[in-house]
């Protein structure tokens, strides 16, 4: 029913209704467990056919948020609409339209990979070919292996296959690359890219900044259940007011206060570890030259000198703190 002939042929970004109903509209979402608040007045909006990465430290409320959107948990407050539907009230209508990859996967312990994917495919009206999907995800050798004997990475890939086999409009991937080797991670990235190209919306959670930076149209950083920053990766990492970071190595204990006097006001400098120096501020060619000249005066060689924009990881750590918790 839902697959009419694509009007634009094979053009890229043939996203269905990407403008009218947002794939996801969450406002003022609250979820409590006992006395602790897992999600605290969270707002999210995601247009159809785009990729949103939900970032946050462990326990930030990412999985809770995703599970509320999937209809597995009931919110204590706020409004959630997924493809225009209430996941709790309209779950039966919503589930055929979404694909879910739960954290840690999910299958019968004794089921073979092929059997599991075929079972999930049988639940959909126009599924992808399960054998092709297993093949392309590198699970051909595992077709007859019971789920509990698959490696963690194989279980992850099977779970990903289960999420997309039903040709959904929107896919929820909870830490899709956790425990994957670099090759498999690339494969997942390619898949997510292909999903977006074909107009499928993807909400993913991750700890990996490069993953979010590479894949996401929109990054949302949450901590303690609340939104702390949102925007495109470029917006989040781009320095407002032209602030860059200059880092170099040299002998330890150099008097950087003296160096800061020669740099424009607004530059800050630290020695976060012995012999490692970091300057943050409006850094241009003149400033780099000033730094190397100052090093020459002290007869030290500035090694590994580089000027960089803040990475998403820096943004993330600045916003959520650097301490382990």
């Amino acid at each position: 029913m839902s697959e009419d002939a694509t009007p634009h042929g094979a053009t890229v970004h043939a996203g269905p209704d990407s403008t009218d109903t947002p794939a996801l509209a969450v406002s003022n979402l609250v979820k409590r467990f006992g006395t602790s608040t897992a999600v605290d007045r969270l707002d999210l909006t995601m247009p159809g056919g785009t990729v949103l990465a939900l970032l946050g430290p462990n326990g930030a409320g990412k999985t809770t948020t995703v599970e509320i959107c999937e209809g597995f948990q009931r919110p204590d407050g706020g409004r959630v609409r997924v493809l225009g539907l209430d996941p709790n009230r309209d779950g039966a209508a919503l589930r055929p339209r979404i694909g879910v990859m739960p954290q840690g996967g999910g299958a019968y312990p004794g089921v073979r990979a092929g059997e599991m994917l075929r079972l999930v495919a049988a639940c959909a009206a126009h599924p992808l070919d399960p054998d092709w999907l297993l093949d392309v995800l590198g699970l051909r050798d595992a077709l007859r292996t019971p789920y509990k004997r698959l490696s963690g990475g194989q279980q992850q890939r099977l779970s990903l296959a289960c999420a997309v086999v039903g040709r959904p409009e929107l896919v929820f991937l909870d830490e899709p690359t956790a425990g994957l080797d670099p090759q498999a991670r690339r494969l997942v990235w390619e898949l997510v890219d292909a999903l977006r190209t074909d107009g499928v919306g993807v909400l993913l959670t991750t700890h990996l900044m490069d993953e979010a930076e590479t894949l996401a149209d929109q990054v949302v950083i949450i901590d303690h259940g609340s939104l702390v920053a949102a925007g495109t990766p470029a917006e989040l990492t781009g320095e407002s007011g032209g602030r860059q970071r200059l880092a170099f190595r040299a002998s330890s204990g150099l008097p950087i206060a003296e160096l800061l006097d020669r740099l424009p006001a607004g530059c800050t400098g630290t020695e976060p570890a012995p012999g490692r120096y970091e300057l943050v501020g409006p850094i241009g060619p003149a400033e780099v030259s000033a730094v190397t000249a100052w090093c020459a005066e002290h007869d030290v060689l500035a090694q590994e000198l580089r000027v960089a924009y803040r990475s998403l990881e820096d943004v993330f750590l600045d916003l959520t703190g650097r301490e382990l918790r």
Binding site: S2, A124, H126, R167, L191, L195
Partner: peptide, 19 residues
């Protein structure tokens, strides 16, 4: 697993529905 998987455009075009 270094095979380059080619996901042809349109492979995942949504076609949702209950079996």
């Amino acid at each position: 697993e270094h095979v380059q998987p080619r996901f042809a455009v349109g492979t995942f075009t949504p076609a949702p529905g209950r079996g």
